[in-house]
Design a protein around this nucleic acid. Sequence first.
DNA 1: ATGGTAGCGCTGCTA
Length: 263
Amino acid sequence: MRLVTWNVNSLKARLPRLEDWIGSHAPDVLLLQETKCTDEAFPREEFSRLGYESAHHGDGRWNGVAIVSRLGLEDVRSGFRERAAETPDECRILSANCGGVKVFSVYVPNGRAVDSEFYAAKLAWLANLRRELDTTCDPSDAVAVGGDFNVAPEDRDVWDITQFAGLTHVTRPEREALRAVLDFGLEDVVRRLHPDEVGPFSWWDYRGGAFHKGEGMRIDLLLASAPLAARVTAAYVDREARKGQGGEQQPSDHAPVVVEVVP
DNA sequence: ATGGTAGCGCTGCTA
């Protein structure tokens, strides 16, 4: 199984590139974030023509998550089953069973600024994600949680930690909230297969030539339960998909994270 | 130089 998570930064803007990428990379299950479209505008038929079933949870301009699968798509759930009052429901989580794996597509709130209400809501959202896992899955089953976590797990997951003083994505509370999700019984499989590297980064700011300067962050993660992680043979970031192609086809500011799983 | 770029959608917000 080839399992991919990718923040596409607008499905409408990215669909031609995404369709090309699907044709050349043959994913089995795609976890998409920031679709920025309504359920009505979701291009279900386009994916169907490529041989994929799909599910979407979105309401318009912001956020939006999807699961696209050619290995089946069952037991789809939009949003949290149990949601605390302090956790906003903003079309940031979607789950389904695909080919024997329970998959989640998640888009963790950005948090904006450390002293903001949005930062507090981000921590609450991650705590709610842990609760969702506790109430809907078993870590002894095959579970994959993929998405844009908006947290860099370690200092080496950003290009220069000294540039992040006082900023979100690298604070101890965010990392502890991510740790609590991992402590459900999940493993960061890209880190597992790249134990001694900086990054590999999955996001680069559009501004200032950040991609070409190597100024990125590793914030898009694929977390797998132990039985699933044991079947992972490769896990990597497709940096090619972040490059410009000339013409009107712009890249997302995120690159896809690709994970290969054997039966 | 308190900037920069992309997307949505039409004004400024979000990232």
